[in-house]
Amino acid sequence: MRKRARRASMLAAATAVAATGVFVAAPSASAGTSEVVNAGFESGNASWHEKVTPFGGHPINNSSAWPARSGTGKAELGGQGLTGMSRISQQVTVPAYRVPVLSFWVRSDVVAGGTSGFGFRQLVVEATADDGTPYELHDRMNKGGTSGSYERVTVTLPDAFYRSSPQKVNISFTVIEDAANRMPFLIDDVTMEYRFRTIDRPVIIPGGIFRPVAG
């Protein structure tokens, strides 16, 4: 009798869930990290593509003038004092049925004396899907800076990068500046983590339906 009563209670709870449409999101479990190659730039520009126009040069360096967050290598984008563009990029493979999450550290100093009269400078972080469509993930201007220290940025890529098969994705960091600015954006320790997608599923609890408590 007790087993029948328990089954009846569970069936009633399941019916109530289906009728009311109450669902509880399953926890987002990590699927591990597929590291970006040469993530900290310690091997120079290995595995990274550099493009600097029109003045040329190599953004990825180990110059002590602008220290890295860790180790000695980092990407130094902009700061040439010339109108132009600096970019670094790398192609990664996003596994099937995984949500890609990009993380990186950025530093942007402001010259003593304030920003009045300073030139235009902008950082744009993009992910380009295998069909050639670019998606802007993050952008920031030169105002304010990060107070002389590195700041971590983490962003989940849009649904367009969640596929049933692996796809090649190009991650790029671009700085656009004018002739009045000589302060670079510094990028270091770039990683891409792949997570399982959060799936809504009904939670059936004998004797009633419980909602999760946010926190």
Results as ranks from 00 to 15, higher is better:
residue 130 D to Q: 01
residue 92 V to Y: 00
residue 25 A to Q: 09
residue 78 G to E: 07
residue 119 G to L: 10
residue 99 V to A: 10
residue 110 V to L: 12
residue 112 A to W: 06
residue 106 V to L: 14
residue 86 S to Q: 05
residue 136 E to K: 01
residue 67 P to K: 04
residue 211 R to D: 09
residue 200 D to C: 11
residue 214 A to E: 15
residue 93 T to I: 14
residue 95 P to F: 09
residue 117 G to C: 04
residue 195 R to A: 14
residue 128 T to A: 01
residue 162 Y to Q: 14
residue 128 T to N: 03
residue 54 P to Y: 02
residue 59 P to D: 03
residue 60 I to H: 05
residue 161 F to R: 01
residue 121 R to F: 01
residue 84 G to Q: 05
residue 162 Y to P: 06
residue 18 A to F: 02
residue 94 V to K: 07
residue 103 S to W: 11
residue 78 G to D: 06
residue 177 E to L: 09
residue 205 I to W: 13
residue 65 A to L: 09
residue 50 E to H: 03
residue 79 G to W: 12
residue 211 R to S: 12
residue 77 L to E: 12
residue 62 N to E: 08
residue 134 P to Y: 00
residue 122 Q to V: 14
residue 27 P to N: 01
residue 47 S to L: 06
residue 107 R to K: 15
residue 2 R to P: 14
residue 182 R to I: 15
residue 178 D to G: 08
residue 33 T to Q: 14
residue 126 E to A: 00
residue 126 E to L: 00
residue 85 M to N: 15
residue 31 A to G: 15
residue 104 F to H: 08
residue 22 V to N: 11
residue 54 P to L: 03
residue 77 L to G: 11
residue 131 D to F: 02
residue 97 Y to F: 15
residue 191 T to R: 15
residue 136 E to G: 00
residue 167 Q to M: 10
residue 215 G to N: 12
residue 4 R to Y: 11
residue 145 G to H: 10
residue 166 P to V: 08
residue 10 M to G: 00
residue 123 L to W: 11
residue 18 A to H: 04
residue 63 S to T: 11
residue 54 P to A: 05
residue 20 T to K: 01
residue 48 W to K: 02
residue 41 F to H: 04
residue 71 G to T: 11
residue 2 R to G: 11
residue 183 M to K: 12
residue 74 K to L: 12
residue 119 G to I: 13
residue 209 I to Y: 02
residue 144 G to T: 07
residue 118 F to M: 08
residue 133 T to A: 00
residue 134 P to N: 00
residue 100 P to M: 04
residue 44 G to F: 01
residue 85 M to T: 15
residue 2 R to I: 08
residue 193 E to W: 02
residue 80 Q to S: 15
residue 206 P to N: 15
residue 104 F to S: 07
residue 98 R to Q: 14
residue 145 G to W: 03
residue 196 F to A: 10
residue 180 A to T: 10
residue 134 P to H: 00
residue 188 D to Y: 13
residue 210 F to Y: 12
residue 118 F to H: 09
residue 141 M to Y: 14
residue 133 T to I: 01
residue 211 R to V: 15
residue 179 A to Q: 12
residue 94 V to Y: 05
residue 113 G to S: 07
residue 21 G to Y: 03
residue 105 W to Q: 04
residue 69 R to K: 11
residue 59 P to N: 05
residue 117 G to A: 04
residue 155 V to R: 11
residue 127 A to G: 02
residue 12 A to L: 02
residue 79 G to I: 06
residue 50 E to G: 01
residue 54 P to Q: 04
residue 211 R to T: 15
residue 99 V to L: 15
residue 6 R to M: 11
residue 195 R to W: 13
residue 187 I to C: 01
residue 184 P to V: 01
residue 82 L to A: 15
residue 7 R to W: 13
residue 55 F to K: 09
residue 96 A to T: 08
residue 119 G to D: 12
residue 121 R to D: 06
residue 150 Y to H: 05
residue 162 Y to K: 13
residue 126 E to V: 00
residue 137 L to Q: 02
residue 198 T to P: 09
residue 89 S to Y: 00
residue 33 T to D: 07
residue 59 P to A: 03
residue 17 V to D: 08
